[in-house]
């Protein structure tokens, strides 16, 4: 059972030290499950299991 967005979203905002209006926090809570599901879907891409991240990194500055 994933964490309750009504708990998680305010906690993450507090951790980030940003303070939207109560109405805005309510919108963020309402939108959270949809995005969480969309992000979970990224772990369901089988070919990504052993794939590297697409990040550019060079030891030479």
């Amino acid at each position: 059972m994933p964490a309750d967005p009504a708990v998680l979203v305010p906690a993450l905002l507090a951790a980030a030290d940003i303070t939207p209006s109560p109405e805005e926090v309510a919108i963020m809570i309402a939108e959270f499950p949809g995005r969480a599901a969309a992000l979970d879907a990224l772990y369901a891409v089988p070919e990504a299991r052993y794939e590297e991240p697409d990040l550019v990194y060079d030891a030479v500055l």
């Binding site: 993450l12 951790a15 980030a16 990040l55 030891a59 500055l61």
Partner: peptide, 21 residues
Amino acid sequence: VSAADYLRALRLRPLFQHEVE
């Protein structure tokens, strides 16, 4: 670790590289 922390660390990387240089 939030995505922002991760990106912050990536953005700091060239600064540390510069210190070594």
